[in-house]
């Protein structure tokens, strides 16, 4: 790909413009929360990042099931790519949450159930990537990945419901809860727009990562072929 071809990349531009737009609206257009003030605006990055991480690990889970069922390497590539992008969004959720926590709770970190289970999520998928990277045999790599991709996903609902099941410092869900979301509807609109924009970014990143995984499989195949 030449530099010029690289610049003409509609999905990349769409995702970039969408993310910049929701950030601008989140920072300058919608009003801030009456009690928390300006720092509440970090929600428009924190919440979408956490949700995208859930989505990414769900894709890894579903693709892992498909791999074990059909031995389909394309599904394994999707599982690996989604886990890696999901790990990045998990890290973004933790960092933005930490900043938000310092300004509202008063500390960067506390071992409350939501924070603890999210930290464990990070460890599980970091382990997933480490294990995949260390297994040379293609089928064993895919099998090991699929098992962890399925078992590890059990933590995602635990992370989500930790604030409902247990006493915590983190507030309970605002939107995914029985009844009307406990957020002003203008703020809710901006939050949902942010989720959409971050989804576009996620799809773009996932696609690029998938291309890389395909190229890697082709390169490995070429190396194994007798010339």
């Amino acid at each position: 790909m030449t530099m010029r071809q690289r610049l003409i990349d509609p999905p990349a531009w769409t995702a970039l413009i969408a993310v910049v737009a929701v950030v601008v609206v989140g920072l300058f257009v919608v009003p801030a929360d009456r009690l928390q003030g300006q720092v509440q605006r970090i929600m428009y990055v924190h919440v979408p990042s956490a949700w995208i991480a859930y989505l990414a690990f769900f894709i890894t889970f579903a693709a892992s099931v498909r791999y074990l069922w059909r031995r389909d390497l394309a599904a394994d590539r999707l599982a690996a790519s989604s886990a890696e992008v999901g790990l990045v969004f998990t890290a973004v959720a933790i960092v933005t949450g930490s900043i938000w926590g310092k300004a509202t709770w008063g500390v960067w970190w506390d071992w409350d159930p939501r924070l603890t289970t999210t930290a464990l999520l990070l460890v599980i998928y970091a382990g997933y990537i480490l294990i995949r990277g260390s297994i040379v045999d293609r089928d064993r790599r895919a099998r090991a990945g699929a098992v962890i991709g399925i078992v590890g996903f059990a933590n995602v609902p635990i992370v989500h419901f930790s604030v409902t099941w247990w006493r915590s410092l983190h507030q309970p869900p605002t939107i995914v809860r029985p009844g009307d979301p406990t957020i002003d509807h203008m703020l809710l609109g901006e939050l949902l727009a942010s989720v959409l924009a971050f989804s576009l970014l996620f799809l773009y990143l996932l696609n690029r990562r998938l291309e890389l995984e395909r190229a890697r499989d082709e390169a490995e195949q070429a190396l194994l072929m007798p010339s």
Partner: peptide, 30 residues
């Protein structure tokens, strides 16, 4: 390989910690 063992260790440790949290009902945060 060492990296595989470290990775497995991380995943298993995290799953055991998680199982402990769920089984004991997250202890009592406060």
């Amino acid at each position: 390989r060492p990296a595989t063992i470290i990775g497995l260790g991380l995943v298993l440790a995290a799953l055991v910690a998680l199982g402990g949290l769920v089984a004991t009902n997250a202890v009592v945060y406060y």
